[in-house]
Design a protein around this nucleic acid. Structure first.
Lengths: 196, 196
DNA sequence: TATCTTTGCAAGCAAATACTTACTTATATG
DNA sequence: CATATAAGTAAGTATTTGCTTGCAAAGATA
């Protein structure tokens, strides 16, 4: 195989990991299989990552930076609470459908391994989303748009169920599920909960 | 080890599987580990189940019979729609918190393996719940208690997010999360969505 | 009691796993 | 050009995996 820089190879390896997880499941994610999919030798993988676990952690780091980072921008923007909440929801739905392998990796890894570092990372990803939603809801209440008596924490938790159950649907239905205006429809439900 | 009937041993084996998954994660669920936890030889396991996969499938069959069966009873009872929905929700929450290993098994197995039989089983468990919820909502609309314009399918999907995100919370928080009146609180949100 | 089925075990099997080693070759830099 | 470094490979390593084998003995049935 032709020579490439570590940067390029690292991206290729991470991308192949997600591809394998989505098409063949986590059980088939062996370093041998991974090498085969990229078209390189198994040993070459270990030139760029010291262990298989390190690849997984690198992917989770990416998720934190790209996905959670973009959600944070949306939540902290100057827009109205309603528009921010819809942006947040739609961005999440889009990310999950575009990167199906990632959420499968996150959930599987959380339960299959019992690694503390990994679990802490996942908890951070989960909790940050919940906090951003809570913040937007509180903003909406403060600007007198939404009902001040609503249980913010509970709605944030219910909100978290949206991306999660969407993902299960995606995993189980082999891509037959097409969430076209899924985001808008869920947003309507959220508004019914939030409005006075 | 003392001799026992297959019936008893089968139950012991299934129970040990769930125990290992919850305490050590799916990755440590090897037949060797399983035998050690029960205190029997590895070979003895294969007297009662022909393969490791068969054990998993037996557990899923139990879930279908016990859990889904009880939900079906609730959904089809003579009670009001509101009371049935609350019973359904609370029964689900209770089952998930009482049998933490089971849901971890279901999610992990759905994503780690790519077995068609398994996925079909999981899809059935997921879809049956959704259908029961839809049925109750339609009953509530028919008896003029709930808004006839609500999108039933979407609410059923949002409902499904409740047990799922509860479970993630349970997995990630090492049992620190205590869903005391979680069921009642979520039910209040559902009612706000359903009422006129 | 005699026999047959069922349940148990220790040892061993081939295959797969994550990772290493010893060595080659491409590329950048003095 | 010479040389150091980085990226590649084939062929190993030890360990773990799911499962089998050959044989012993407990329990049921005659």
């Amino acid at each position: 195989m032709i020579r490439q820089s570590t940067e390029i190879r690292k991206e290729q390896i991470k991308s192949a990991v997600l591809d394998i997880i989505f098409t063949d499941g986590l059980k088939n994610l062996s370093t041998r299989n991974l090498a085969k999919r990229i078209g390189m030798s198994e040993g070459a993988i270990f030139r760029h990552f010291t262990s298989k676990q390190e690849i997984i952690l690198a992917i989770i780091k990416d998720v934190k930076k790209e996905f959670i980072g973009s959600l944070r921008l949306i939540a902290n923007s100057k827009d109205t609470a309603e528009r921010r909440l819809k942006s947040l929801l739609c961005a999440t739905v889009k990310y999950l459908t575009d990167n199906k392998g990632i959420t499968m990796l996150l959930f599987s890894e959380a339960t299959s391994n019992n690694d503390a570092v990994l679990k802490a990372s996942l908890q951070e990803i989960f909790n940050t989303q919940k906090k951003l939603v809570s913040k937007i809801i509180l903003d909406g209440i403060a600007s007198c748009q939404w009902d001040e008596n609503i249980p913010v924490e509970n709605i944030a938790m219910l909100y978290m169920g949206i991306p999660v159950s969407l993902n299960i649907e995606l995993v189980l239905s082999y891509g037959e599920f097409h969430p076209d205006n899924f985001c808008s429809q869920m947003m309507m439900l959220m508004l019914k909960l939030l409005n006075k």
